[in-house]
Design a protein around this nucleic acid. Structure first.
Length: 315
RNA sequence: GGACGGGUGGGUGAGUGGCUAAAACCAGCAGACUGUAAAUCUGCCGCUCCUUGCGGGCUACGAAGGUUCGAAUCCUUCCCCGUCCA
């Protein structure tokens, strides 16, 4: 990274699902001469459109949207991959002197971009296979005991039941031959040369839930089922990563005759509500966010945000 | 009118004399989370008080009475709900 880059502004919009980040992003881009960069682990995938709430071409209003539809469903998105792609996009925007406007639903990806990732090896499927096999063969708590031996400090921070995180921690220990906590302490490279302005959308929970529910109904009316059917018909494996996304797994179950549509609708609503809650938990901790209590498509909220950004030196 | 079965905390639902403010699950709330993150995991979850302790008080298993040292659990009556018979 070159050290002589001047500090340019970069806007980040954070908020739970259905809070109106996309609409706000387009609005800000129009007003401030920017382009939208999506920071979302699901909109990355081609073909999974309706359920991931990608803004339609008309909703995008001619504003370029980056990091949307860049992965095929067979690929696996990761925080590191997203970071790489985002850095490339940022370079391009810098050259063209366009304001980057991130719409961020995936907190981890945003953090990976802004604060960097430690120099940690990528996942190794072979190692994971072995670890999972050994989990099968041993009584509960086995992985946790292994980690305790490799890195007591890390073991303290991960619950014995959290297999996913345990596997990752053990994986890093094994691959680097060092305790994970040490590897992570070595630090990371934060994003340089950008002056980050964070805006948060925090609609009242009850209103947000209503919005979530009606949006799911709309998605279904727009042919979400047909989309899922078409994806399955295309020969895509039903184990592909994006079929794990909220809604896609439920609708797949409907199409496989495992559950009824009504049950799926309720399950989707519930899962989405919980997801929104987790997003809020994550983003509440995010440093330096200027919060606005409302939806991003509310003109009054938009005006307030534009005003704040103006005071910060934009527009 | 009669015969059974049942009424438990926001929901589903266990519990058949003390270990029960009441399992479990769901919902809800709060939280953690450096490459699966729309994932994964943790805590709380009747009210209340304080010297925050495996602490105290109060209220609670349809209602009211009763038996008992002690009842969600046993008895009586009543009220609801379901099924069946008339």
């Amino acid at each position: 990274m070159s050290k002589n880059k001047t500090l340019l502004p970069l806007v980040v919009v954070v908020g739970p699902t259905a809070s109106g980040k996309s609409t706000l992003g387009v609005k800000l881009a129009e007003r401030l001469g920017g382009e939208v960069v999506v920071c979302d682990s699901t909109q990355l995938y081609c073909g999974f459109d309706i359920g991931t709430a990608k803004p339609s071409p008309s909703e995008r209003r001619g504003i370029p949207h980056h990091l949307m539809d860049v992965l095929s469903p067979q690929e696996e998105a990761t925080a590191g991959r997203h970071r790489q792609l985002a850095l490339t996009v940022l370079d391009g925007l810098r050259q063209r002197n366009r304001l980057p406007i991130f719409t961020a639903g995936t907190g981890l990806y945003l953090r990976a971009l802004l604060e960097g990732l430690a120099d940690v090896p990528q996942r190794s499927e072979e190692l994971r296979e072995r670890l999972r096999a050994s989990v099968e063969a041993h009584p509960p708590g086995h992985l946790h005991r292994i980690l305790k031996r490799l890195d007591p400090e890390a073991a303290k921070k991960i619950a014995p039941a959290d297999e996913q995180k345990l596997i990752r921690a053990v994986e890093v220990c094994v691959l680097t031959r060092k305790p994970v906590s040490e590897v992570l302490r070595a630090g990371r490279t934060a994003l340089e040369a950008w002056h980050v302005l964070k805006v948060g959308l925090m609609p009242p929970r009850e209103k947000l839930n209503e919005r979530i529910h009606s949006r799911i109904d709309t998605m279904l009316e727009q042919g979400w089922m047909r989309e899922v059917q078409a994806l399955l018909d295309s020969g895509l494996s039903e184990d592909s990563k994006p079929f794990d996304f909220i809604g896609y797994r439920e609708l797949r179950a409907v199409l496989c005759g495992e559950i009824r549509l009504e049950a799926a609708r309720e399950a989707i609503q519930q899962a989405t509500r919980r997801y929104a809650k987790r997003q809020l938990t994550w983003f509440r901790r995010e440093q330096g966010v200027r919060w606005f209590s409302g939806f991003g498509d509310d003109v009054a909220v938009q005006a307030g945000i534009l005003e704040w950004l103006h005071i910060q030196g934009l527009g």
